[in-house]
Design a protein around this nucleic acid. Structure first.
Lengths: 142, 142
DNA sequence: CTACGGGTTTGAGCGCACTCTAAGTCAAGA
DNA sequence: TCTTGACTTAGAGTGCGCTCAAACCCGTAG
């Protein structure tokens, strides 16, 4: 698989794939006779996992740390696990924060909804009065 | 309240407060005779709310839009509400994504845990054999 | 043969959200 | 009076994560 296809299938751009390789997030890819990168489909799993780390806000530096451990392979399991566990805790904390913020948003939005409702009720108090757009001038004024 | 105290009480730095004022996220503050900013405690509520928007990933451009509507005041309620509702949806979606990622992390971490367990079991198979640290040289070698 | 649609490299540029520097003003305490 | 520390401004610098530009190299279809 060449870089263009990998780009389509992974959702990254070819630019980003090269960038990731350059910084070490993706392993150095084999090149064919034309020195074009030639990828094995298995890279997709790794890119997908990187995507999860990214979605959860892990900075590249730390992904890099994980990637290095992964490259070293044997004997790095405990450290990789620790890294992921630490990250998981941060993500959980962040999810809690987000949920707390969602409650605040609900309250705020609820406040606006109430205001709108009160305005509708007020308008209904004067059935004959047509509602004018805000900022409309009275007819006749220039 | 001067900028230093506001910084302490809001958790922002004085630098950031000035920056926020410069870009319009905070209203232009009254200055005292020495042209030092003089804040009313009510600003803390606004900063806190901005913090919630920031925590939930709202870009500054959009906070700015909200801040402008808020400054305009009357008649902008519907638009502010719409903006917050749209944002709330994005946050909910993001929280769902994070939860999905957490499951993936759990699985991955579970995999490492299993591997560690298998290693322990393997070691237990040979009760007489002392476990050596990875990379340890056999005794006697220089 | 030539044009095209990929690919290659190095290195520069960008948008975001701060963060800091320099040079100056001011008020209060020793 | 002098020093200290908190404040002021305009503008430069930083770190992150890409994103793009320039100049070049291939293989294939017309």
């Amino acid at each position: 698989m060449k870089i263009g296809e990998l780009a389509r299938r992974s959702g990254l751009t070819a630019h980003t794939i090269r960038y990731y390789e350059r910084i070490g997030l993706l392993p150095y890819a084999d090149r064919n006779q034309s020195s074009h990168r030639d990828y094995d489909a298995s890279i997709l799993l790794w890119i997908e996992f990187l995507g999860h780390l990214k979605t959860t806000g892990m900075p590249i530096r730390e992904m890099l740390r994980y990637a290095e451990l992964r490259e070293r392979g044997s004997g790095t399991g405990a450290e990789r696990r620790a890294l992921l566990e630490q990250h998981r805790e941060r993500v959980r904390t962040h999810v809690d924060e987000l949920n707390a913020c969602l409650l605040v948003l609900d309250t705020k939005i609820g406040g606006y909804a109430e205001t709108e409702q009160r305005m509708k009720d007020y308008d209904a108090t004067f059935p004959a009065r047509r509602r004018k757009p805000v900022g409309a001038r009275s007819s006749g004024s220039r």
